[in-house]
Amino acid sequence: MRTVVNRVLLGLIGLLLLAVGVSVLIGGLDLQRHWSFTMPSSWPFTGPDDVLLTARDRTRYRSDGWWWPVVFAGLGALFLGSLWWLIAQFRTRRQRQVRVDSGDGQGALLRGRALEGVLAAESEAYEGVGWAHAVLVGRRGAPEARLVLGLAPHATPGEVVAALDTAVLERARTSAGLAALPAEARLRAVKHRPSRVS
């Protein structure tokens, strides 16, 4: 769920809430009078005595029995939706199990961490790769690999990526009986501690 659209929506909602908060703060603390500046005539809060809903707005639908239950139900749905969205930001899509085609029509389940460990270990075995970390995401029958590789200064990124695709990922696809194993690799430089030469 952590996509560009999700981040844009979160940013827009954050800006909207910030604008509402600033308008309430300016009116509530009477900053216009203290700091001698004026706000547009359409500004909702111009002083500490202003309210969000006037007495007329609050009592307009009092005679309608449906009004306040609908308002509270809408606010409750908004709260639950926001809570679900917040929890979804921390939920991982990590693949716990991968369905393996065993050739007998039954299939088998392979622990996702086992396949991640093999991908990381085989990636580290290549010349120029200092360390590797692998995570499987996606659906059980169609996993995707996310790899982070730490490259030594003498490594050639193109060669490492080519070896990763033709050997490591191909072997994982074949051994797990997967039709495809899409992968995203992020390459980082291995940081070495400076050493003193005497």
Rank of each mutant, 00 (worst) to 15 (best):
S23W: 02
T59W: 07
P194W: 06
G158R: 00
G14N: 11
L78I: 12
G141K: 08
T46L: 07
L149P: 02
V24P: 00
A185I: 07
R7L: 10
R171A: 11
S23P: 00
F79Q: 04
S123I: 04
H34V: 09
A167N: 12
P40T: 01
A167Y: 03
E116W: 08
L115G: 01
R58F: 02
L15G: 08
F72W: 13
E122K: 14
A162V: 00
A77G: 13
I87K: 13
R56T: 04
T3P: 01
A77C: 15
P157I: 00
V100R: 15
R93F: 03
V129L: 13
I87Q: 11
A152M: 14
W35H: 06
A121F: 04
G107C: 09
R99M: 10
G130C: 07
T38Y: 05
L52D: 03
G105A: 12
D64T: 03
G107Q: 12
W43Q: 07
T38R: 14
Q95I: 13
S63P: 01
R140M: 14
H154A: 15
R60C: 01
V137Q: 05
S42V: 08
V4Q: 10
G65K: 04
D101M: 09
L83K: 03
D101T: 09
V135K: 02
L149A: 04
E124Y: 03
T92M: 01
G141P: 01
V197Y: 08
A185M: 05
A120V: 12
P69Y: 15
V168C: 06
A77K: 02
A180Y: 04
T59A: 12
R93W: 05
G177H: 08
G150C: 10
R186W: 07
G105Y: 14
V190M: 12
G150P: 11
D30R: 04
S36V: 06
S195L: 13
G105S: 11
D64P: 02
E159P: 00
E184G: 05
D101V: 10
D57G: 06
A179H: 08
W84H: 04
L164G: 01
A179G: 15
R96A: 14
D165R: 12
I87A: 14
G28L: 03
E127H: 09
H154Y: 13
N6K: 02
E122N: 08
R173P: 03
E124D: 08
L83T: 12
F72C: 10
P157L: 05
T156M: 00
L119I: 10
E122Y: 06
K191F: 04
G158L: 00
R58P: 02
D50A: 07
W66G: 05
V161T: 11
T38F: 00
L10W: 09
G177S: 11
W66H: 14
L16W: 09
L151Q: 09
R91T: 11
V190Y: 07
L52Q: 09
T46S: 11
A185N: 01
L115I: 06
P194F: 10
W131M: 09
L164Q: 14
L12R: 02
L187W: 01
A88C: 02
A162F: 00
G128W: 11
G107N: 07
G158W: 00
L75Y: 07
L86Y: 12
R171S: 13
V70I: 11
